[in-house]
Design a protein around this nucleic acid. Structure first.
Lengths: 175, 175
DNA sequence: TTGACAAGCTAACATCGTTAGCCTATCTTC
DNA sequence: GAAGATAGGCTAACGATGTTAGCTTGTCAA
């Protein structure tokens, strides 16, 4: 029962401002002083609302997981069992929210401080579409790999990423 | 012709010490003061050998790319055209050198400061085994995704990663 | 009216990368 | 051999970062 105390309005404002900074300017732009500015207070006062900076980032992760889950659920809402539309939605979310995507999916995850269930919910659509957990993990790895390599600019300039996505999805689709 | 001036012995010592710190303690343990300690000088003196901290990290990336390329070339040296041994080598390298792997493959890449050719060489074995560049990218994304998600502890505790690898490699293998 | 508490503030600390400026040994050049 | 340049070390310090300590003030309960 790790039920978080419901966030105060002021704390919600802070998270909203933090999300705005993150999405616009990236993770390293999100400093306590900058965040304080955005919300009209000095950096130390933020600590009246959050124990540390990590807590703010974790709130953003919760939010990111939720947004991502919603996008993926939408993608399989219609008919359902095709991998392609889910993959499209995954990639689209990452490109629409690159900084948020990175925050949520890259680096060590403070799982014990996360809102419970949020991670499982985001993973559910893929598990449903693939059926098999092993295949689901393989597909997840493929999709995350494609997205993060693209966001990090690791593919050569001329690379046809649509074709790479297609190749992966085709062969990885459950039969 | 971006030929780097050959590194002085002292600079090589510094890079070696940096690699040691990185591999043992991870990227955030690699600070200029800590590195100075390891090599017996004060932090500012390091700037007599490298223009900035990034230059040290870039030297480590060059080294990481080279080591990784060597490991992958070894893996396909024998018979050759099977994907499975290459994938095994890829995963093994990442698990043996997690911090180095992360430094080399995650985050933005300062491509213009890298030793020329080093990235292409590391990519070559996979391209040879898959034949097709699109498939090669898909397989790379899969392998990197598997590895980085494993290193970051993103898979659930009980997950059978061998099975996920097998599922991915089986379906992604060129026929 | 009093007292507690929530929520702001300033000042300050340690750590980080980095710069400025100084010193000294070695090596080149007349 | 003398003189000057250069390589390579040093200390002091700067600005940015997250964070803590301690003060103040307004609001609400007893």
């Amino acid at each position: 029962m790790t039920d978080t105390p419901p966030r105060s309005p002021r704390a919600q404002e802070i998270v909203a401002a933090a999300l705005d900074i993150l999405e616009r300017e990236g993770r390293e732009a999100l400093t306590m002083r900058r965040l304080g500015d955005a919300v009209g207070m000095r950096a130390p006062s933020l600590y009246k609302h959050f124990p540390d900076k990590a807590a703010v980032e974790i709130a953003l992760m919760d939010e990111g997981f939720a947004q991502m889950a919603a996008a993926l659920e939408d993608a399989i809402a219609g008919e359902g069992d095709a991998l392609a539309p889910l993959a499209r939605a995954y990639r689209a979310f990452a490109k629409a929210h690159p900084h948020l995507y990175r925050l949520v999916t890259a680096g060590e995850l403070p799982r014990d401080r996360l809102l419970p269930g949020v991670e499982v919910r985001a993973a559910a659509p893929l598990l449903r579409v693939t059926g098999d957990p092993d295949l689901a993990r393989a597909v997840w790895a493929f999709a995350h790999g494609m997205v993060i390599l693209e966001l990090d600019g690791r593919f050569p300039p001329g690379a046809d990423l649509d074709a790479a996505w297609a190749a992966g999805i085709r062969t990885l689709s459950p039969r």
